[in-house]
Every structure is written in structure tokens, then in C-alpha cells.
């Protein structure tokens, strides 16, 4: 009897140990980045898990750099524009793909899936040419255009899944009243699609906010860069002494809003990520 109770106790202890391990591994790097961001640069040679002296100097330093503020502004501009375009094009396309049966529908869906799969590098030289031809090189416009390559397929796909689940009685009623498809979308479906659009919009925003390869390749000057490139190139100055404390301060500034958003909307995000995955 006692040995059985003992093994049960051991299993419980093991489980909680596993939970603790998972939480520590998931949270520690971010915690350590926050800790470093408050540490005076001169103290960094001493490794410590808890800050002994805290300072805001690193934050003051990055916010006094015009290029960092400009990068945040560029990132916000690019990410919100991309979300807006992806949702606008995505909602109309998802109506066509989710509610209407027509010839070529499967082909269009497969093409969209294909585009979402292929590597960004494969279009790099071709896209470079397109962006230069449109005079959008070293310009947020070039990034907004190029980011539709990964946000649009995903938005269309998830919105189509959601669109399909809406009851058909609504559409029947609209057609009986003589509503055109455009009126049906804007007046009937749009109000019901807000939750789905919030989810896909949030995921598209995160994807655009984090993108690096295009942002690195299609911009040239500090004033046009987005946050990931700015942070990656902060270290480019000298190879021997990297400004780790300011880098961590900048990292925390651009990450905290995302972490907060993701935690607030975790249910929505999970449903967006798994939309179709388990049902299919």
C-alpha cells in the first residue's frame, strides 16, 4: 500500500517537475533579455541572474536614436498596410472560394496553397526587378507589396474556412431580397466575419512585423528599415564589443506588445492556427 502511494507521489512530483522545466525554458530567455535591458552596460561582464543595479540608460539610448524610432514607425506602417490589403483582398476572395461553386475553384485553392509553401528566396531576384521597375526600392511600399506573398495566401485560406461555416439561410434570405453578391458580403457576411478577421489580421500583422529577408534585401538606408533589420544590424557596428544592453532594450520594446497581444488573444490565435488542420 505504501509503495503504491509512494510511486503515485513520485509520478505527481515528476509531473510538476516537468511543468516547471517547460515554464522555465519557455520564459527564461525572455526574462534574461528584460534583465539585461535594465543592466548598466558596464555591469555586463559579471553574469548575474537577478539585477543588482537597474538603469533606464539603455532605453534612453535607443529612444534617442532617430533611426530606431523611424524603424518602429516603418514597421507599424508596413504591418498595418499589409493587414489592411490582405483582409480587403482576402474577404472578397474567400466569399468566392467559400460560397460559390465554379469551375477552376480547386485550381485556385491549390495555387494559393502552393504560393504559401514556396521559399521566399526563390522570388528574390524576380521581385527585386518588379520592385525596382515600380520605383519602390528602399521604400516601405516595396515591403508592403512583397509581404502580400505570404500574408495573402494564408488570409484567404483561413477566411475561406470561416466563411464556409456561416449558415446558408442568411445568404438565401439576401438573395430572395435581390441583394447583389457585393451587398451580401458587406451587409450580411462582414458583420459576422469580424472575429475571424481579427484573428487572421493579428496573425498577418505578426508575420509582417517579424519578416526579415525581404526587409533586409529591399531597403538600403537606415531611414527605410523595419524593426527586425534595425535590431539585426545594431550588432553590425563592431565585431568585438557588441552593445548587448541596448540591443536587449530594443528587443524588449518591439517584443512586449506582441507577447501581450498573443497572451490576450491566445484562444483566437490557437483557433486561427489550427483552422482546418484537425478538421481536414
Amino acid at each position: 500500500m505504501t509503495s503504491r502511494r509512494l510511486s503515485k507521489l513520485a509520478a505527481r512530483a515528476g509531473f510538476w517537475l516537468l511543468v516547471a522545466l517547460i515554464v522555465v525554458i519557455a520564459v527564461f530567455p525572455f526574462y534574461y533579455a528584460i534583465k539585461t535591458s535594465f543592466t548598466p552596460s558596464g555591469d555586463l561582464f559579471r553574469v548575474e541572474l537577478w539585477p543588482t543595479r537597474a538603469t533606464l540608460a539603455n532605453y534612453v539610448q535607443i529612444f534617442s536614436q532617430r533611426s530606431f524610432l523611424q524603424a518602429i514607425f516603418n514597421s507599424i506602417l508596413v504591418a498595418t498596410s499589409v493587414v489592411f490589403i490582405a483582409l480587403l483582398l482576402g474577404i472578397t476572395a474567400s466569399y468566392a472560394l467559400g460560397r460559390v461553386r465554379f469551375r477552376g475553384r480547386t485550381t485556385v485553392l491549390l495555387v494559393i496553397l502552393g504560393v504559401s509553401m514556396f521559399p521566399q528566396v526563390a522570388v528574390l531576384s524576380g521581385l527585386f526587378e518588379v520592385i525596382r521597375a515600380l520605383n519602390l526600392y528602399n521604400n516601405p511600399g516595396g515591403l508592403i507589396l512583397s509581404y502580400t506573398i505570404f500574408t495573402l495566401p494564408f488570409t484567404v485560406w483561413v477566411l475561406t474556412t470561416f466563411m464556409r461555416q456561416l449558415p446558408m439561410e442568411l445568404e438565401e434570405a439576401a438573395i430572395m431580397d435581390g441583394a447583389t453578391p457585393w451587398v451580401t458580403i458587406t451587409k450580411v457576411f462582414l458583420p459576422l466575419m469580424w472575429p475571424a478577421m481579427a484573428t487572421t489580421g493579428l496573425l498577418a500583422f505578426i508575420a509582417a512585423w517579424n519578416e526579415f529577408l525581404f526587409a533586409l534585401t529591399f531597403t538600403l538606408t537606415d531611414s527605410q528599415r523595419t524593426v527586425p533589420v534595425a535590431i539585426a544590424l545594431l550588432s553590425g557596428g563592431s565585431a568585438y564589443e557588441l552593445p548587448w544592453a541596448p540591443i536587449m532594450a530594443a528587443s524588449v520594446v518591439v517584443t512586449v506588445p506582441l507577447v501581450v497581444l498573443v497572451i490576450i488573444f491566445q484562444r483566437r490565435i490557437v483557433s486561427g492556427l489550427t483552422a482546418g488542420a484537425v478538421k481536414g
Binding site: V19, I22, V23, A26, V27, P29, F30, Y32, A33, T36, L44, F45, V47, I206, W209, N210, F212, V227, P228, V229, I231, A232, S235, W244, I247, M248, S251, V254, T255, L258, V259, L261, V262, I263, Q266, I269
Partner: peptide, 28 residues
């Protein structure tokens, strides 16, 4: 715990690479 597990996913790849580069720094 689920919220904690989501944190690495929410962190931009560039930022997580920089964070780890600092944690993996050979001297400090």
C-alpha cells in the same frame, strides 16, 4: 502554463536569435 509556452512563439525570430546570441556569448 499555456500562456508561458506561447511566449517563444510570439517573439520575432530576429529578436530570439539576438537573445540567444547574447545568452550563448562565449565570455559573458
Amino acid at each position: 502554463v499555456r500562456a508561458a509556452v506561447l511566449i517563444p512563439w510570439a517573439i520575432p525570430t530576429i529578436v530570439s536569435a539576438q537573445m540567444w546570441a547574447w545568452m550563448l556569448n562565449d565570455q559573458f
